[in-house]
Amino acid sequence: MRHAIWWHVYPLGFAGADTTGADRRPTRGLARIADWLDYAVRLGASGLALGPIFASSTHGYDTVDHFRIDPRLGDDADFDDLVARAHRRGLRILLDGVFNHVGREHPAFAASPDGGDAPPRPDWFVPTGGTGPGGRPEYATFEGHGSLVTLRHANPAVADHVTEIMTHWLDRGADGWRLDAAYAVPADFWAQVLPRVRRAHPDAYLVGEVIHGDYPDIVRRTGLDAVTQYELWKAIWSSLNDANLFELAWALGRHDGFLDSFVPLTFVGNHDVTRLASRLREPRHLAHALVVLCTVGGTP
C-alpha cells in the first residue's frame, strides 16, 4: 500500500450494462475490464478499484446476492480470470462491499415480491414502527432510498454473514475491500468483523467510505486501514474555483495531521460526486488539481 495507486472503475457502467434493471441479459463485463489491464499499467496504476460486481437489482448498490457475480458482468470464471490477469501484471484488486444495506429483492428481506408482511429474517432489518401499503411494516432505509434496506448491525448473525462474504472473496484472490457507506455503519460492527477477516487475510487492505467526522478516531474505533479523504477533495476544487488558497492550506494542514495515524484514500473525483472537469470553472485548473493529488501523502 505504500506505493499503491488505484485505477477506479465502475464495472456496470464500463461494460455498458443497463443499470435500471430492465435489461439483465448476461454479458461478460469483467472480461471487458480485463482487456484494459495493460492500459492501467501504462497509466501507472498498481491496483484496480472496482465498483460493485455482485448480483443486484439495478445499479450494483442494491445487492441481492453477495456470493454471486452479477450476470451482467459474467460469472466466477470471469472473476478468477480477471484476478489472475491482474496479478500477473502486478495489479491488486479492491472490491466494493455494500454492507450497510441490501436491495429489497435480497432473499433475507423479500418474503414476497413486494417485501411481504413478515420477511424470513425480520431480525436482520430495523422496523421503523410505521406501516406501508396494505398495512405491511416498514423498515429503515439508507438515507431515504426506499430500495436500499438497512441491515440490523446489532445482530451477530449479520456480522457473521459479512465476515463470511469478505473472507470468501479474499480467498478467491481479491486483495482488499472498499466498504461502502462505512460512515453509516456503527463503528463497533466493523470492530467485530474486521479482526476476524484479518485473521484469515492479514495483508488485506480495508478502506471505508467516510464523508465527514473525526477521521483518525473512526480509523481507531473501526480497525480500518484508511478512510476516504472528502475534506481534501472538497478543498481542492473549491479553492481553485474561488481562488481561495487559504482553504486549501487549511485542508492540507488537517491532511498532514491525519498522516500521523493513517494514510487517507485521496481523490479528486469518484462515482458519487460531480466529475472534476464539470466542477471546475476553468479547465486550466484540472492540471493544478492533479498536481495536488499526486504530490500529497495518501493513496490516490
Results as ranks from 00 to 15, higher is better:
Arg85Cys: 04
Phe189Pro: 06
His145Ile: 11
Gly103Thr: 12
Val41Phe: 07
Glu105Lys: 12
Asn244Asp: 14
Ala154Ile: 00
His106Phe: 10
Arg32Lys: 09
Leu290Cys: 03
Tyr183Gln: 15
Phe125Asp: 00
Gly47Ala: 12
Pro120Gln: 01
Val83Met: 04
Leu12Glu: 06
Thr295Tyr: 10
Glu209His: 15
Asp81Phe: 04
Ser56Ala: 12
Ala174Asn: 08
Leu224Thr: 08
Gly16Arg: 13
Arg254Thr: 14
Ser238Ala: 07
Arg254Met: 13
His201Lys: 12
Phe99Met: 05
Leu91Met: 12
Ser278Phe: 02
Pro107Gly: 11
Ala77Glu: 12
Asp188Leu: 07
Val126Thr: 01
Ala184Pro: 08
Gly134Phe: 00
Ala45Tyr: 08
His106Asp: 06
Thr141Ile: 01
Asp242Phe: 05
Asp171Arg: 13
Val126Arg: 01
Asp188Glu: 15
Pro264Asn: 14
Pro26Tyr: 10
Ala277Val: 11
Glu138Thr: 03
His285Lys: 07
Pro186Lys: 12
Ala108His: 13
Ala49Thr: 07
Arg104Ile: 15
Leu73Arg: 06
Asp117Val: 12
Leu82His: 09
Arg172Phe: 07
Asp272His: 13
Ala31Arg: 03
Ala277Lys: 04
His168Lys: 04
Thr228Phe: 14
Arg199Glu: 14
Asn244Gly: 02
Ser56Arg: 02
Leu290Asp: 00
Leu94Gly: 12
Ala40Asp: 06
Trp233Ser: 00
Ser147Cys: 01
